[in-house]
Nucleic acid binder design. Sequence first.
DNA 1: TTTGCAAGTGAATCCCTAT
DNA 2: TATAGGGATTCACTTGCAA
Lengths: 385, 385
Amino acid sequence: MAELLLKERTAKPREKARTAGKGAREVRELLPLGQIIPGDCIEAMRSLPTASVDLVFADPPYNLQLGGDLARPDGSHVDAVTDAWDKFDSFAAYDAFTRAWLAEARRVLKPTGSLWVIGSYHNIFRVGAILQDMGFWVLNDIVWRKANPMPNFKGTRFTNAHETLIWASTGEKAKYTFNYRAMKTLNDELQMRSDWVLPICSGQERLKKGGAKVHPTQKPEALLYRVMLATSNKGDVILDPFFGTGTTGAVAKRLGRQWIGCEREAAYREAALERIELALPLDESAITTMQSPRSAPKVAFGTLVETGWIAPGAQLSDRKRRFAATVRADGSLACGAESGSIHGLGAKLQGAPSCNGWSFWHVEHEGAFKPLDDLRQLYLLATEP
Amino acid sequence: MAELLLKERTAKPREKARTAGKGAREVRELLPLGQIIPGDCIEAMRSLPTASVDLVFADPPYNLQLGGDLARPDGSHVDAVTDAWDKFDSFAAYDAFTRAWLAEARRVLKPTGSLWVIGSYHNIFRVGAILQDMGFWVLNDIVWRKANPMPNFKGTRFTNAHETLIWASTGEKAKYTFNYRAMKTLNDELQMRSDWVLPICSGQERLKKGGAKVHPTQKPEALLYRVMLATSNKGDVILDPFFGTGTTGAVAKRLGRQWIGCEREAAYREAALERIELALPLDESAITTMQSPRSAPKVAFGTLVETGWIAPGAQLSDRKRRFAATVRADGSLACGAESGSIHGLGAKLQGAPSCNGWSFWHVEHEGAFKPLDDLRQLYLLATEP
DNA sequence: TTTGCAAGTGAATCCCTAT
DNA sequence: TATAGGGATTCACTTGCAA
């Protein structure tokens, strides 16, 4: 494997040449969106234009270096990762492979894009050091704490109960996407931390064929869901160089993102395409994430009233319908003797120092009870140039 | 600092020469137990004998951005870090520093010793890759999940709520200490996992002088407590090359371990000595931990037969009574034409590569159907001095 | 229909001592 | 150093069948 991967490629012309001078829309039209490029990921990425991708999510081989067989205390056999794609001759060979695919990922990423890599202690230190050396700027290391890890059967070490993800921008000064509000909302109004507790992929979600798992290391969709919600926007292009059975593609489709995969194994590609075909995109309003105030285009509540999205006299409530208020023509709210802006009145009623009225107040809209922010997003979508 | 740290030292004679041929007791007498060696840790470690220490706990600096604190491997000064090249330069300097202190730690460690390093995403990937390159064998990466981390005030990233520790043995085949039972006991009879939830160091535990923190990154004693309880034994020698205000020393004293520190800053040394002076050693019985059966006194099955706990001719079965065997006078079992030890026959009958006869075979005893292991425990209780 | 028990399984660097 | 053999070792969750 490594021989093929590591041979010198600098002699070949870069795609950069073909895309130089092209506009963003033209570049995007060159992308194989919703497709899995067959073959080795480094070659596959070379076929993509420079600076064309918003997010790279990579789940490379971990180089586990497993010994012999392992049995559980009850004598049953542990089904280990023995696939050829996880075998490397040495750390040096693994490092060279890592540098090669990271270099292509870096070229393909937009300057405002970011990179995720997942790994374990077998490989993650090497990956992290190499990407730092290449100029990537680590933003966070994220710990996926597995709710249900495999135990250490022989009692020789601590239960290996987590994996590590590195999130990095393209450089120290680079801008990047981080949907702070969406994460805070997802985390029950507390800042999302660097440790995420999620179950491993099992049950119905786990792809099986003839009773056997299709891929030995399928990742849970919840993990990708959080990654994409946090660090990409609707419509963004997400590249997964180690596509496997397509968790990245399935979640991208659900969340209204575009995806591109690279995968060598035909069996994985087939399973992935079939799976993604079945994935259902979420409803528009469900995808819409809370925007941080800084990046959200400003929309005054009054504008929604002015433009008829919300009629004066409409009734608003909080999610649990403990409070109710009436919309007035100037965009202020009234509740009994109290009145104020959506934020001010929300705070006053709750006795809180402040309140985000966009998420606090809900309204009936097309038969559903939605936060005002959903309407604001719909308004923005409808009025976008 | 770095100028001193990184200059070539191979010309100086190693302590190895002075300790070659000495016995373990003589080597130990050369150790400055319960002392803090002043000065740069690499020089300090050079004064210690080879293969004399059971555990190294290191909390190295990770101020990669502070060029002024570091020098290039050739000793030249690194200017302010502004662009990618300087960044690389500063990484290279940090790497050289890391290799230098890890090399001394490796020399000083006994082959059966192990190493802990704590860090964050700024430095831990580099430390991990380097120690792997040096032949250390990573046993676990441990996530210290902070119960009360500092929030991310700017809302630009995930709350950095953890730090990472690497635990490594001196080599792939090296033996090492892991007190599995003690950890399981500490964790309410569940295997201790690789993610530890512990509060940060604050309140009474935090050393202060005139209201200000004495040390910016004082580690909680609970962290060291778990590290030492898990991977060292009573009386072991524990070295901390970045001693700071002496958390390692204080916990070592409490747990009946010997300690050696290295620290450059006189203010830290003073605070540490004062603090350790006040630390109270736990009494003998409190330090005693749950032992693995592996290190418990062994009982041969034949002994139970000899002493009449199980009579020759007794019938044994597995829990589901699929197999039956007869106990013979020499402590072997017979089942039809097959015979062997309790382990060997159990494996043979099941067609398994191995079998723990103590848990596999059951016997009627005082009206109940019990695994042999229960009888062994009763025997041990009855015969204990 | 619900509850309970048994069986299966997941990115795993998984034993130690005597001969 | 390689081999043989004693003997120590698991958590959370899912599925399927039995009661």
